[in-house]
Amino acid sequence: MYYLGIDIGSLSCDAVIIDKHENILAASVVPTGAKNKESIARVTDDVLRSAGISKSDIHGIISTGYGRDRVEDRLGAVTEITCHARGIKALIPNTKLLIDIGGQDSKSILLGQDGKVIDFAMNDKCAAGTGRFLEAMARALQVDIDDMANLDTGANGTLTISSMCTVFAESEVVSLIANATPVNEIVRGLNRSIASRTVSLMKRIAPDPLGMVVAMSGGVARNSGVVRAIGDLLGSKVFVPDSPDTVGALGAALIAKEKSNGRR
C-alpha cells in the first residue's frame, strides 16, 4: 500500500510517496508555474515513475499548500501548517518549534509531544521575508537565487536592510549596489532582515525559545545563509532536514496513510 502527499505552493509543487511502513519511496519538486494543474500532473508522474508504481497502487492522496483544492481524487485537503508539523516530526522527532518559509508566506509552528500543532503564527499582510522576497533580491543583485546561500561569506555583518517591504527593500539594495557596497555585505544584511522577521514570528508563539529544538522547512531552508542568520539571532542551532522542500508533502503522505487507516 502506498500513499501520496502533494504540496502545491506558490513557487514549487512537491510530492512524496511513502509505503505502509512510512518509508519514503520517492520525492520530487517542480516549479508550480502559471498552470498548477499541469504541475500537479507532472510532479505526480515524477514520483510514480521514481517509485516504480502506477496511480492505481496509491491507496490515498492528501493535498496541501495554497493549491490544495486543485488536486483530484484526494482523500482530503489539509493545510500546510498541519502537514509541515507532521512531516518534521517524522524527520526530526524532538522538534518543538518549526519555521516554514515558503514562496509567499512564513510560519512558525509550536508542536506538542505528539507532533500536533499547539499554536502557530503566520506573516501578516505582506510577503516580506518569504521566498518571493529572496527572489526579488537575487534579481536586484543579478545573482542566481541558489547561489545566495554562500554569498555572505566573509561579510562583517554590520549592514542592515531597514526596509521591510519587498519593493522598498529592492530599491534599497539597488542603492547599495550603486554605492559599491560589497555583495556579501548586502546578502548578509538581507539574511539578517529575514531572520529578524522570522524570530519575531517565532516569539509570538514561544516568547522564550531558548532550549527548544528548532527546525526549519520550506524552500528557503535550503539557503544556509538565512538558516545561519536565524540561528545567530536565536542563539541556538536550527536543524534542517535533508529535503526541506518536501516536508509538507511528506506530512501530507503520512496523513493520507492515517486517514486511510481511519486514524484521524
Binding site: Y66, V78, T79, E80, I81, T82, D105, K116, V117, I118, D119, F120, M122, K125
Partner: peptide
Amino acid sequence: RKFTEGQLKTRIEAFIEMIDAR
C-alpha cells in the same frame, strides 16, 4: 479589495485543524 481569500482561508483552516486535534 484588500480581501485575500486564499491567505485567510489557510489561516482559518489551520486554526480549525489545530482546535480539532486538541
